[in-house]
Design a protein around this nucleic acid. Structure first.
Length: 418
RNA sequence: CGGAGCGUGGUGUAACGGCUAACAUACCUGUUUUGGGUACAGGUGACUCCGGGUUCGAAUCCCGGCGCUCCGACCA
């Protein structure tokens, strides 16, 4: 993509209505636009990054046999009555509205009910199980207080996977597989080292759930980390839990963390309420044993920014950067630089390398500043200086300066070798 | 939802109750410059969040509303 065509502009100053690092940088660099409190739009750069995160998650969900769907965001009251989750007393984050007919509607904040109901028409035998289904979906939650930029919003993308098994034992097997897939995902997204699997509250479904908590100042949770890497969410930390895990309180280190993923055992709560049953080998009807597994790609994106940004701007891990290469051309009078940079851009692009080409007519300092702010991992500079460089060797035609955004390391690479 | 703070060109700021609401940046024209936001000249752009009130006079004071941020509570 040519930067001269990119409709978003970088900003020198952060908007005054944002304090969080992730929102300030993402807005200044042109990744996102704030629509209102807790509601953000994703612009070309932001969408590319979000899609990279989505892509990694999708690959790992497919790898454990997940089948992707896209469920409706509009929810009718009837299905939620069955589980008593329509009531505002039970669930206080609903955004509700009405159809012209007067029928009540809700904007989905999760999808257990509609998917369980849908599955009644699909699952009827033990032969249909195990099964897991997932989606990337916009969720709506009427939070009393949105905060921390894109970390806690009222409208957000969520990957939610639901598993269907014959019994608890089969479920436990899948649950473990999903947990490992999550570990892999956060590793690939570049936050594996700071992300801990924690024991957390099971809500109304089971004793524990597991959360994936990334240690980060912008997080809202407090976790306790043991030497061996196990961790516990503060909300469930008590003597009984410590004993279960054979840990002593004094061995635990406290840290602020952001919840980037959460996996739950649902059991038969939803299948029983909505009548999702199957016939076992003996012909007996039994409720399906379920689990649910969520990751918020937007929150992950914010967490990555919080964790890796430096004083010059964003620093993306390669796996999520909107482009792999930021090609910066510092034009000369004769047009030699432009010719070489144009050719390099074409060449890299035709090889499938994702390149953001800064072909704008502006000063070197501005281009470098923007490149640092946008945070693409590799910066390629073509200028009069690099073209004169003697490092070109026998290939001739000068060099390209290759700079790593993370380490700042610079290499001169002959133009002809790309 | 409780508490606190803040709403002024696109963005960031300034302006004692008193002149045509100022400055920077961004944007447009031109010249200049070309390895870390180059310099100069000219120009466009604001019912000062909305509605009331006080006053000869309100961006400024008062009341109400709306919006935004932060702290807390909340977070299937």
């Amino acid at each position: 993509m040519k930067q001269s065509k990119l409709f978003t502009k970088t900003r020198r100053e952060a908007p005054k209505d944002e304090v969080s690092k992730n929102a300030q940088l993402l807005i200044r660099a042109g990744y996102i636009h704030k629509e209102m409190a807790g509601v953000y739009s994703y612009l070309p750069l932001g969408l590319r990054t979000l899609n990279k995160i989505v892509g990694v998650i999708r690959e790992e969900m497919d790898a454990i046999g997940g089948q992707e769907v896209h469920l409706a965001a509009l929810q009718s009251k009837s299905k939620w009555d069955a589980t008593k989750r329509w009531s505002d007393k039970e669930v206080d984050v609903w955004f509700k509205t009405k159809m012209k007919s007067g029928d009540e509607l809700g904007l989905g904040f999760t999808h257990e009910e509609p998917l369980t109901d849908l599955m009644r028409g699909q699952i009827s035998s033990y032969r249909d199980l195990p099964l897991s289904v997932y989606q990337f979906q916009t969720k709506f939650r009427n939070e009393t207080r949105a905060k921390s930029g894109i970390m806690r919003t009222r409208e957000f993308l969520m990957k939610d996977l639901y598993s269907f098994n014959v019994d608890e034992k089969a479920h436990a097997e899948f649950y473990e597989k999903a947990k490992q897939a999550y570990v892999k995902i956060f590793g690939r997204l570049g936050i594996g080292d700071q992300t801990y699997v924690t024991n957390a509250s099971g809500g109304s479904f089971s004793k524990f759930s597991h959360e994936f908590q990334t240690v980060c100042d912008a997080g809202e949770d407090v976790i306790y980390i043991a030497e061996d890497g196990r961790a516990i969410n503060k909300e469930v930390l008590n003597d009984e839990v410590l004993e279960d895990l054979k840990l002593k309180r004094t061995d635990l280190k406290e840290a602020k963390a952001a919840e980037v993923g959460n996996i739950f055992t649902l059991g038969t709560r939803f299948s029983e309420a909505l009548g999702l049953n199957f016939k076992d080998e003996a012909g007996k009807s039994r409720p399906v044993f379920m689990g649910s597994y969520g990751i918020g790609p937007g929150r992950v994106m914010g967490t990555i920014v919080e964790l890796t940004a430096d004083d010059k701007g964003i620093v993306w891990p390669e796996s999520v950067a909107p482009f792999a290469v930021h090609l910066v051309a510092l034009f000369d009078e004769e047009g030699k630089v432009k010719k070489v940079a144009d050719e390099l851009y074409e060449k890299l692009t035709s090889k499938g390398v994702e390149v953001l080409y800064d072909d704008r007519q502006c000063s070197a300092g501005e281009k470098f500043g923007d490149a640092d702010l946008i945070g693409i991992p590799k910066r390629y500079v073509v200028s009069e200086k690099t073209l004169k460089s003697s490092d070109a060797g026998s290939l001739g035609g000068g060099s390209v300066e290759v700079k790593d955004r993370v380490t700042g390391k610079v290499d001169m690479v002959p133009v002809g070798s790309f």
